[in-house]
Each structure stands twice: as C-alpha cells, then as structure tokens.
Design a protein around this nucleic acid. Structure first.
Lengths: 173, 173
DNA sequence: TTCGGGGTCATACTTTCGGGTGATTTTGCC
DNA sequence: GGCAAAATCACCCGAAAGTATGACCCCGAA
C-alpha cells in the first residue's frame, strides 16, 4: 500500500523535494550575492536557467506516459477512474477475443442505408473504390455516389476518417 | 526560399522572439523593482515562475509531435502483469477494458522507423497527408516520402490497407 | 397516382494520393 | 572523422478519390 502510494505519487514527491532543494539553493545564492548589492543580472540569469530547466524536466516527466487521450462521444455513460491490474499478452499476434457485435444504436443514428454500410465495410477492409465496385457488381461511379452520401451522413471528408469513426463507434470490427 | 527558411526554423525563431520579449520584460521588472533595493524574493519568484512556464512550454512544443510508443522491455515469457490506470465506462453495453499495448514484435518485423510509425498513427486517425504535415511541422513532400516507404515496408498499396494491417497486427489501437 | 428514398450510372471537374527520382541535412554509431 | 540510416524537401506525373449535378429505375407509402 505504502509502496503503491509512493509509486503512484512519485512524481509529486520528486517535484516537491526538488523544489525544496531549489529554494534552499536560491536562499544560499541570495546570501552569496547579497554582497554585490547590484548584481541582479547574474542572480536573475541563474534563476532563469535553473527554472527553465526545471520546467522542461517537469513537462517531460509529465508527458512521458503519453496515453492517447480519446475523445468519447458517448454522453449517456458515467465515467470513473479505477486502477486495473490486467494481464497483457506480449507476443501473441492476434488478440481477437470476442466476436464482434455491431452497435445498432449508433448505426441507426447515422441513418446509413444497407448499400452504404456495405461500401463502408469494404472500405474499412482497405479496398479501393474500383475493387468495391467489382465486388458489388456495380460501376465505379455508383461507389463514388455511395461513398459521398456516406461521408455526408457521417460528417467526414475522407474514407480514412469514415473508417476510423466506424471502428470507434463499433459499427465495424 | 525565404519562406522555406522561416517555415523550417519556425520553432527557433519563435523561441528567439519569446526569449527577447522575456528579457525585455525582465529588464523592465528589474527597473521597476530596483526602487525596493532588497525585494529579491518577489523578483526571483517572478523570474522563476516565468521561466518555469517557458520551460514547460518549450518542452511541450518540442515534444508534442513525438508520440513514443516503443516498449523496450523484452520479455521471454508470454504473459506479463502491468498496472494501468484507465477510465472505465459504466453502463455501456460493450465492456471493453483492454488497454492497448503495441505489438512490438510485429512492429520490429516491419522495420518501421520512428517517424514512419508516427505518420502511420496519424493516418489511422483519418488525417490527410497535408494535415499530418502540419501536425508534424514538416512539408507535404516529406510525408509523402514517409508514407511511400511505409507502404513499401508494409507491402501495401494504399493508406487504408496500411491502417487495416496495422490495426490487425496491433501496431496501433 | 404521386411522391420520396434507395439504388444505379454518367459526365465533368478538383483535390488528394502514390510512384519515381534525386538531392541535402541530420543523426547515431563505429 | 567517416559511414549509413533516417529525415527532410522538391518536382513531375498518373491514378485514385472526392464533389457536383443530372438522369433513370424501382418500390412502397401517402
């Protein structure tokens, strides 16, 4: 527990200690430089350099565990922060565990037609418009029309955005 | 040419200008506070705060596009336990709680460089080449070069395929 | 029967993507 | 210091993607 606390608040503690040391150093510097009553520049410069370094260090420390902050659009859900201890499989390539269940609610909200959804699925598989057209036995222009309407409904500009959104909304595996 | 120079050294110029402004501010502060001959603390405090902020800003500016995803720990066992702090959504139909861990084995196999991986990540977010270029502070042509090499290494033809493969191989979330 | 949505297809146009090539600079490493 | 890889940037060109508009067909609901 105590170790966990220290581990979790290591940063804050470290920062506090560092700050204390710095303040002590400053006091000492002040005393040292007080004899030259007007040597502001040196003193100020030292402080400036010190604290610039501190700032850089602090920022780096704070941003190192950069965990992609996801913007969640689900508003009706409650959110709370917990600590989970979880097993992570390091060397297994395929981690597919659960069979995919499309999110009907989000799908309905978008109002995509059957054909548009088909196109979206093939898009997410990395197929080109021509390949999708061939697979669905329609013309390239038809696919373009579908994709345009698709983008309009999903409020995106590119197929990559559409795929990203679809995956995020669990419309597509 | 001149524009290119400015574009390329934008950060340095920005930093230089900011530093100049700050120095000017300091001079003014010094003049302001010189009347109280012994108010070191206030002056030093101001400088400290200012430069801490500067340091943080600088570090963030410099490291913003760098999304470090490489995990160095090479383990022989197939399972390792990690402690992660994450947000869990209550009441949501889908209870996916898996924290993403990049598959560094596959990643290594592909031999992607750091920059290429960054481009791949931004691609998967649905960004266009131009947007990626803006975000990484480089030119559009550079992104094109990166993406080309990326496609070559991943043996794909299109960005959508690259994204699809990357997600399948758990290289990106 | 009219009306609207979905599906199909076309033309014309602009933008983006990707391949190919060549170049310079930066960086890590021996 | 020199080397190799990485990163940067540029130019050209063709292909693919995306936009805009209009047209036709089919079918079910009003």
């Amino acid at each position: 527990m105590i170790f966990g606390f220290i581990s979790r608040h290591r940063l804050a503690i470290l920062y506090g200690v560092s700050l204390a040391i710095l303040l002590f150093l400053l006091k000492w510097l002040e005393w040292k430089f007080i004899v030259f009553t007007h040597s502001f520049e040196l003193y100020a410069g030292a402080i400036a350099i010190l604290f610039t370094g501190l700032g850089i260090w602090l920022a780096l420390k704070l941003t190192k565990p950069r965990v992609e902050t996801r913007i969640e659009t689900r508003v009706e859900t409650r959110v709370e922060t917990v600590i989970v201890e979880k097993e992570v499989y390091i060397n297994s390539g395929l981690t597919e565990t659960a069979e995919f269940v499309p999110n009907e609610k989000e799908l309905e909200k978008l109002g995509l037609s059957k054909r548009e959804l088909e196109v979206l699925q093939l898009m997410s598989a990395g197929l080109s418009n021509q390949e999708i057209a061939d697979k669905l036995f329609v013309s390239l222009n038809t696919i373009k029309t579908h994709s345009s309407k698709l983008f309009e409904k999903m409020d995106v500009k590119r197929r990559t955005q559409a795929v990203e959104m679809a995956k995020r909304l669990s419309i597509i595996p």
